[in-house]
Design a protein around this nucleic acid. Sequence first.
DNA 1: TAGATTGTTAATCGATTAACAATC
DNA 2: TAGATTGTTAATCGATTAACAATC
Lengths: 227, 227
Amino acid sequence: MSKNDKISMSVIRRLPRYYRFLLELKNNGAMRVSSRELAEKMGSSASQIRQDLNCFGGFGQQGYGYDVPKLFDEISAILGLDHRYNAILLGVGNLGRAVVNHVAFESRGFNLVALFDKDPSVVGVEIKGMPVRNVAELGDYCRSHQVDAAFLCLPRESVEPLAEVLYGCGVRYYWNFSHFDLTMKFDDVIVENVHLNDSLMTLCYRITEEKYPMIEDKPSEEADGEN
Amino acid sequence: MSKNDKISMSVIRRLPRYYRFLLELKNNGAMRVSSRELAEKMGSSASQIRQDLNCFGGFGQQGYGYDVPKLFDEISAILGLDHRYNAILLGVGNLGRAVVNHVAFESRGFNLVALFDKDPSVVGVEIKGMPVRNVAELGDYCRSHQVDAAFLCLPRESVEPLAEVLYGCGVRYYWNFSHFDLTMKFDDVIVENVHLNDSLMTLCYRITEEKYPMIEDKPSEEADGEN
DNA sequence: TAGATTGTTAATCGATTAACAATC
DNA sequence: TAGATTGTTAATCGATTAACAATC
């Protein structure tokens, strides 16, 4: 793969994992790592690691491997974690609060600059030093501040009208926890979805598949093998 | 693909999406849908939908398409949503609370039967009608109740010792929100991971890639002086 | 230097798309 | 019946793995 080709989603989704394992190695004081060692740790293959990294550049050294702190910095830069995109969060219910308190925005490229909710009983409350604003002020806020991204922690039915406001104000990047499909409605947005229910259903499928396998036991064909 | 082959993860991860769109169609009173129509709605391809469904059986009818309520029921059955696997949740911090309150377990194949935390100030508190139990009782609880799955809403460093207790009690299915890699430690478990930080980093990468593209504009092949 | 390990090309494997005969 | 749409096979596309020359 040439360095100019578009990076595939498969590779992109592996980058945060490289980031995590390299951070751990770095914190443990490791100075070098080979693709073989890293693959072993991560449960992937050396070949894949070298292919992935070489999408972005030749970060290693023949006969030596990769310099851990250097590679960590490279991955951080590739991910763009040195940026501080301004983000607002909509919906400070249980999920929104968990996101505010649980996610490490600052080290993941984002500044969380404002919170919004429609529930009057929560408007004005401070969370992590930020007042919850009335969602009625959303448009005003976005027009008077630089807002790059929106984190949507809303019930599905609330998303569409608010997304229209956001889109109208030029917000193009979304972290979406609802099942409303923003890409179907707006064709020039970047949306990262987190679908907890889908994830849980996948677990249910995999459990069921293991506990109650649907083998239709095709008995022939198999018998005439040898060893 | 024969009905006996192992279903690929790509297909499995699309099943919850089929479930959602079919539920919506059903709720809107639609009786039939063709693969072409469904593909349009979902932003996928008719061919893929037919391929996916035919991993599990021939649910359609030539010249007609698919019966919506019937196909919905089939997908539900394939996902195993009619099961009621007993699940316990560990860690009722912000994230744990969000999961308890936000996720529709009952319609996704699970019964949430107990909550655990180590923080004495939260032990005893009721959440959704369930008392938070002391994590010290975890082993006792698991040995005296049928526990199929554990939802791990814990900080990374708390996972390993508790996972050992759970595994020792025969718990093999995990919904894991931490970055501790359970599959590296236990080789016969089924783990579904939700990595919020990874998801956010992926968004950061995609924003950065769009705003600051790294086109190296290779103007002439090897006009390259060495360095 | 000799051994190690990368960067990169080639081979394989798997997933998606296209095509079309079967059939409702 | 004729038109529509599936189920399924074949063709294409993309991703992973293997191999090895380059080189530290």
